[in-house]
Amino acid sequence: MIELHCVQVTYPGGVALQDLSLTVAAGQMLVLVGESGSGKTTTLKLVNRRVDPTSGTVLVDGRNVATVDAIALRRSVGTVFQRFGLFPHMTVAENVGLLPRLMGCSAADIHARVNTLLEMVGLAPQVFGDRFPAELSGGQQQRVGVARALAPRPRILLMDEPFGALDPVTREGLATQVRQLHVDLGLTTVLVTHDMTEALLMGDQVAVMHAGVLLQLGTPAQLLHAPSSDRVRALLETPRLQVERLGRLVSGAA
């Protein structure tokens, strides 16, 4: 469970988040949307203490993150990045096994864990384990990114535009798989995306942000049927139009 209470974040350049309060219940997936610079990444960073709030409190599983060790906190929260962030000088197996190794697991345990994780994200360990990231496609690299994030058995998963750099087909496949993992592993997940359709299809809750302010927080259905402002309505216009056109195409062809 993640709770933000009246959080404000001020960077030297100005206010990035203003009076932000939201809760992600255990096992839920929250999707953050909003235009560039609206504060989505900053919100993610609050959860594993990569940014400290200027005021307000951040609670993870009931504990104020300001009072816990940042390194331990980050290891208990998995993170997936838009540009994968795989270490190019380490093999796939070494990337995935890095945190278990740093946390003192035995070589045998690491090996077994790496194999399980790679299979979990749909990569054959014998084929991919000894490859370097440069020897993988983008989709494969992000699968490794997900496996690495899950390696220390986190209860929380943070994903910042994880599919942004992938083609639509790969993206669709991986998104489905991530949603499945989220459910299977009982994770509490916060996902950032620019794709409104993706947000509506994946999130239990969707948060729409604008210029550091939370415009609306609700289920996809609430957003679709009761947008709180014109801005939110405008954002939902794109998927709605897409659905209508596709619907016409489908019925016309039938």
């Binding site: 594993n48 990569r50 390194i71 331990a72 906190l73 980050r74 290891r75 993170t79 990045f81 540009r83 962030g85 795989l86 270490f87 190019p88 890095l98 945190l99 740093l102 690495r148 994030a149 220390p152």
Partner: peptide, 13 residues
């Protein structure tokens, strides 16, 4: 910087 950012977020000292 993407890599150091990643290392930081993963919890490397």
């Amino acid at each position: 910087p993407n890599l150091t950012e990643a290392a930081n977020a993963l919890g490397l000292t």
